[in-house]
Design a protein around this nucleic acid. Structure first.
Lengths: 305, 305
DNA sequence: ATCACTCATATCGCCAGGGTATCAATCGCG
DNA sequence: CGCGATTGATACCCTGGCGATATGAGTGAT
């Protein structure tokens, strides 16, 4: 009759992800036997078989798959409770803004200027994360609000689009394609992108969900300087919003328009059912600024898609 | 460095709700000293003061208020993981539909008939709950989908309106007002309703949230037969949707229209971010049936408000 | 000043949960 | 077909966390 415990969920998630008791125990920093026992206890507690296991293979039952999903969100919720309580207890609580470095389309100073005077405003603390780390940060309470490019995993979040801006391709200045008058995605087929995918896969959803998921775990995360270096060397090409291209003019790199390259959508996102006034005020400031400053980005009226 | 545990959250919620260590310990079925110690441990772990306590009073700090909210949703998420895994593990998993008894506007047989042929359909299991028990049931995993009248607490849920139907007032047949040609809410001032509130408070949000909250904990829940008896005796009056009035014609009870009584909105709700095909199919069936059958309810086109 | 109330501290005992050693089952290989 | 390697399960011990009881100490009311 006792309760499900966080530890049991953590253990189960580790085993379900590794599909291997030894490695999971390793990851959890414990020995394998107590882990086996804990899973068994969990199964008895739920009166459900979660893993079908032989000595050579471990696989999830349907119930296990269901629990894996629910356990992840439950663990996120617990972690969020932890982190938010910590932040709320600090003498001067701050608004933690998660941002992909430089992916603010130049709006950040304007947004901050619009936000600070608000009566509910808190000091803003920037949390710069790698690619695809903004949305998880919101879910597990590391951040209160995030500005990030679509697509991202909307699970557990509310969001609003801030602005849409065209993207350019960055390539080495000496690249033969840089001399072309116009480019299409097809011309870039086979070129590799910073995340290891290829240019002609651009925009295609990788997972089953059309809503757009974060890149898979383990995707390499580069910082901007690294990317620019690789581009200049001709190793990769890169798609980036015009605002970012303007911020980093560089002799060795050519920026070109690509006729059929989807534009970039910058969104602002926050935890669902968030009742925090500072967050609401920040979202409001960001949307106001974005709406007002958009014409400066490319001179055309706002559009989506 | 250890993790936040479910037990700690349960303890904290109990104390935060009771604002009294003794009563909270009582509710948790334990002694007071270990509870005090557990809270102290939790505070040290989070490095935050959650409760300001003297020997005579206990009150929440801002951090405590934040944690109370987050802890409740985290506990709901854990309970949901538990219950959903249990259900998914059953040899024949079912779709658990939470329903306020008889509040289906006569749609239930039609919805079931529309749902059963669907390829993703599961056997439907009815969970009849008392007043205001449908939405919590969704949040903690006791149910997969619910049909319930607005307003309800939308926190953590997605929902769609099914239909809007006028409400009538039920009163004793001998009531002087039953003879009146037309009624307004003001005429009913002072009459008490089944939930202990008064007729002239009808429709006013009790909490701070305009979104509409569930009735407060501890609100008495009556079954229909009890309510009808009390109405017939003249102890109370009752507002109910026309479909319900038609289902229970009764000599001792008069049903009358009230000109300024807000209509009843029936909604279908399910846990947010639900990826279950059976649930999606059920929602689809319900909305189709509601849209198709609505003209039969009152002959007018659908409207809201 | 005393009493009642309530939260904190001290101390003890138990068992949940982790560690080590070992067994048992399955697959690969010659 | 037999042997070894791999991997999950079982047996057993032991520590630390958690709960209970007894008691202390601060505060408000009469």
């Amino acid at each position: 009759m006792s309760d499900l415990e966080v530890r049991q969920l953590r253990y189960f998630v580790a085993v379900a992800e590794e599909l291997h008791f030894g490695r999971a125990a390793d990851r959890l920093g414990m020995a394998q036997p107590p882990l086996s026992r804990a899973i068994r206890t969990l199964e008895r507690h739920l009166d459900v078989r979660l893993l079908e296991r032989t000595t050579r293979r471990v696989e999830l039952t349907p119930a296990g798959e269901a629990l894996l999903r629910d356990a992840r969100t439950a663990l996120d919720a617990v972690a969020a409770a932890d982190r938010r309580a910590r932040n709320a207890g600090r003498p001067a609580p701050s608004l933690r803004l998660a941002l992909k470095a430089d992916y603010d389309a130049g709006l950040l100073p304007l947004i901050l200027a619009a936000y600070q005077p608000h009566e509910a405003a808190l000091p803003v603390e920037l949390t710069l994360g790698g690619r695809g780390d903004q949305d998880p940060a919101l879910r597990d309470g590391r951040a209160d609000v995030a500005i990030l490019p679509a697509p991202f995993d909307r699970h557990g979040l509310d969001s609003e689009p801030l602005l849409t801006e065209p993207r350019l391709v960055a390539m080495a200045a000496g690249d033969p394609l840089a001399a072309r008058a116009s480019l299409r995605l097809a011309d870039l087929a086979g070129r590799s992108l910073p995340d290891g995918t290829f240019a002609d896969m651009e925009g295609r959803p990788s997972g089953r969900e059309g809503a757009g998921m974060s890149p898979p775990r383990g995707a390499r995360s580069w910082d901007l300087a690294q990317i620019f270096n690789l581009v200049e060397l001709g190793d990769i090409i890169w798609f980036l919003p015009v605002s970012l291209a303007r911020r980093y003019p560089r002799p060795g790199i050519a920026y070109r328009t690509v006729a059929d390259l989807a534009p970039s959508e910058l969104h602002i996102a926050w935890p669902r059912d968030c009742r925090s006034r500072p967050v609401a005020a920040f979202v409001d400031a960001a949307m106001t600024v974005a709406a007002a400053s958009f014409p400066r980005i490319d001179g055309r009226p706002r559009m989506t898609g």
